[in-house]
Amino acid sequence: MKEPMVRTGTAAAPQTAEKVSIYGVVAEFESPEALLEGVRAARALGYDKMDAYTPFPVHGIDEAMGIRRSRLGWIVLGGGIIGAVAAVLLQWWTGAVASPLVVGGKPLFAFEFGLPIIFELAVLLAAFAAVLGMLALNGLPRFYHPVFKYSRFDRAADDRFLLALEANGAGFDAEQAAEILKSAGGRHVEVVTE
């Protein structure tokens, strides 16, 4: 989205023809608790655009960062309903319309025997909705992201908790951001470019 840019090294106001496009300032924390401290410190100083990169979901971070609860549930419900309706149509149409044939003295269509497949297809489509919906909401697969350039990014899937204060937030100032992260106990503070 951003135009190509060069780093000037000065953290001036972003609108003054600053050619640097930086993703943000990233720091490493040792524990989930330390990370949460960092998040709170940054929020207290008005930084609201941020992201954390952690080896496992850190509980309490959603509230700390002000992220809303996932709405995935509604997508999944939609998938389930489509599956159930499709199963009814499939069994009713094939059994009662396309090839009506009485077997075993049973009706051409009935919910008594239709339910197992209605259930299965509902679950099948709901499960697909859950996985594909999750990927779509997350914008995955995405094989490049600026944070991969952070020198210690590898540890984010191992034992470290990264916090990135993102440059597209209001009033972002790289130096101030770095200072906040440092004073909150973050280490290896780096400015990461797009």
Partner: peptide
């Protein structure tokens, strides 16, 4: 391209929970 983003974990955990529920 998983990067362990907190924003992703939120949807991920929900997806995992819903898959468990299904």
């Amino acid at each position: 391209g998983w990067r362990g983003s907190a924003r992703h974990w939120r949807h991920y955990e929900m997806a995992y929970l819903l898959l468990a529920g299904l």
